[in-house]
Design a binder for these strands. Structure first.
Lengths: 224, 224
DNA sequence: CGCTCTATTGATAAACCTCAAATACAGTGG
DNA sequence: CCACTGTATTTGAGGTTTATCAATAGAGCG
């Protein structure tokens, strides 16, 4: 499918030249809850996540968090903001032990000049995110909370799912509040929904842990 | 402000080389309601709007329209989808008499190879849209309908406002349904809200026509 | 074991959608 | 110029989803 062509190229490129990149960039380790950069700060560095998970979020006028995206290994963060000399539009926080590669502005521009193809790959990565967000905007405006939660679970299975004999475990520590903040619902609605699903035997969950035992049921819900 | 640097460059570039571009691309005129391309079709052409207005929308599962964005003169449509060899992610429809410049895939790639800077400018344009949509996603998930309508009106004033002695006229023929589909509300809620504002003397509206007479009041509402 | 953070669950309220019906308006053809 | 027709808008009534509030229970940690 053409859809993932360029994104995969970007990931492959970054992966092939891993040694080079590490020499040009700097490895950095984060512990859970560490904040990598904050919304509104001048964008100084570009990041590539190699292990763990980042949460990209904005604050609304009431001080509540809205989670724009979760960043898993192979994804970049902040690159276009750096290229444009702008501010970070979101806050990036580690949800678990996370490793990133850091380039400062000069290093990242040098990297692109050395590999001009990266500019096009980056364009396609940003475009992927735009398309994804367009779809989620549609869902937020026309589907109800249960469907949006189901779709989020399915997406998480793809990006952070670990096959297990008991089901697919979501390898990101997500609270009910984290889920709510991502799909535009309240923590209470999320809690009630997951409780119902658990009673139906579709998933198992404990504090910040989710294992999906009946993916088909959730996919069917998402298509409703 | 750094924020608009690249977008403006793209517009300027396209404008400076207008004659060149017209020779490479083809001028095309649309009448109101004409559909330029449809969601799901293979992306064949890139467009630059030079006059009029396009509505970019997706269909939800119930067949309802969700309007992702309005495209006004100087903005592009479909470029990244063409570069990636993908499908159009949205449907583009003219809301008034509209002129676009068309490049087929080969022509557009040739254009970029002749002016490599365009790739970076395009990246920044796509990034602008991503940031805009991130902000609207936040608003949709945490603000109520009245505030979202107010913010849409303010945004329209900037992009399609015509100063007039009686106020700022929105130079796009928007139905209540069009407004509702953009901000994720029902036509009825939009109608009630505009009626209230009209009674307060903040705007005047007739069928598909809006003139804002008290921008300050709407801006204050948006900041609530 | 107590402290803190997270999750659950019930009761209530608010925002908003849906449905229905009336009204206003633009364009058309006689 | 006017009636006619189809579309757009308005407004009320009622229902639904979901947020909010409050109270409780549970999990992890020192």
């Amino acid at each position: 499918m053409g859809k993932c062509l360029y994104q995969h190229n970007l990931k492959a490129l970054l992966s092939d030249q891993y040694e080079d990149l590490v020499q040009q960039g700097i490895r950095k380790n984060l512990i859970p809850m560490d904040i990598l950069f904050r919304e509104g700060e001048a964008a100084a560095n570009s990041y590539l996540v190699t292990k763990g998970c980042l949460k990209l979020s904005k604050l609304n006028a009431q001080g509540g968090e809205v989670i724009i995206r979760y960043i898993t290994p192979g994804d970049m963060a902040a690159a276009p903001a750096v290229l444009r000399n702008g501010d970070y539009p979101v806050t990036a926080q580690a949800l678990k032990f996370t490793e990133v590669i850091v380039w400062d502005k000069e290093g990242f521009i040098a990297l692109i000049q050395k590999n001009p193809k990266i500019a096009m790959d980056l364009l396609m990565t940003v475009y992927d995110r735009l398309e994804d967000l367009q779809t989620r905007y549609l869902e937020l405006s026309s589907e109800q909370a249960e469907q949006r939660i189901a779709k989020m679970m399915i997406s998480l299975m793809k990006h952070a799912g670990q096959e297990h004999s008991s089901g697919v475990h979501i390898d990101i520590p997500l609270s009910r509040q984290n889920i709510a903040d991502h799909i535009g619902a309240s923590m209470y609605t999320v809690s009630r929904t997951l409780s119902t699903w658990e009673k139906s035997g579709w998933l198992k969950s404990s504090r910040k842990q989710i294992t999906i035992t009946n993916p088909g049921a959730l996919k069917a819900l998402g298509k409703t």
